[in-house]
């Protein structure tokens, strides 16, 4: 049962990911990205990281994809033209090389034995997360909050309308 679920969710992650890469319509790509992220969240559940699975659905499949869709609607780009055959060939060759390298690395036995999972269920509850976050990891937590603030200010500065026109950078 566990194996079947793993294969199902692995396929749910990888196949829509492939459709993101090969679709020419950005809306289709965004929808496939939601599917891929949901499969990824299910894999997190199988790795017993329940809190991160919820966070993955909320932040990635929720906020980030909605942001992508919003920008797609905003800029209303037409369908991109087909890539040249040389580009496609190079990309497929790169994909084949990467997959071959990955399979060699994993299954040739050169990288030694892999770790086996311990029987103890990890404490990945949101309560332990909160306690750790506000005691041991307080400084990184605050730095992250400051980083979010900086990103917000940066986004406002970048996308201000008059800033784009004042510079007048028609390159």
């Amino acid at each position: 049962m566990r194996e079947f679920l793993f294969y199902f969710f692995a396929a749910l992650t990888v196949v829509p990911g492939l459709f993101v890469a090969i679709s020419r319509n950005p809306v289709n790509a965004a929808m496939n990205m939601i599917l891929s992220f949901i499969g990824l969240a299910a894999l997190f559940v199988m790795l017993e990281s329940y809190f991160l699975a919820i966070l993955q659905v909320l932040v990635y499949a929720g906020a980030i994809v909605v942001l992508f869709l919003f920008i797609i609607m905003l800029i209303d780009a037409e369908r991109a033209p087909k890539s040249g055959w040389l580009t496609s060939l190079a990309a497929v060759a790169a994909l084949a090389l990467m997959v071959t390298g990955l399979l060699t690395l994993l299954y040739s036995g050169e990288s030694g034995t892999f770790a086996v999972a311990g029987e103890t269920a990890p404490a990945a509850l949101s309560q332990t997360f909160g306690v750790e976050l506000f005691t041991r990891y307080l400084l990184p937590f605050q730095v992250t909050g400051f980083m979010l603030l900086m990103a917000m200010v940066g986004v406002i500065v970048i996308s201000r309308k008059d800033a784009a026109e004042d510079k007048g950078g028609e390159a």
Binding site: T13, V14, G17, L18, V20, A21, I22, S36, L40, S83, T87, S88, A90, A91, V92, A94, L95, M98, V99, L102, L106
Partner: peptide, 13 residues
């Protein structure tokens, strides 16, 4: 690794 390779493939394509 497969997902990463597919992402890199899309970036190139």
């Amino acid at each position: 690794g497969l997902l990463f390779a597919i992402g890199a493939f899309g970036v190139l394509l």
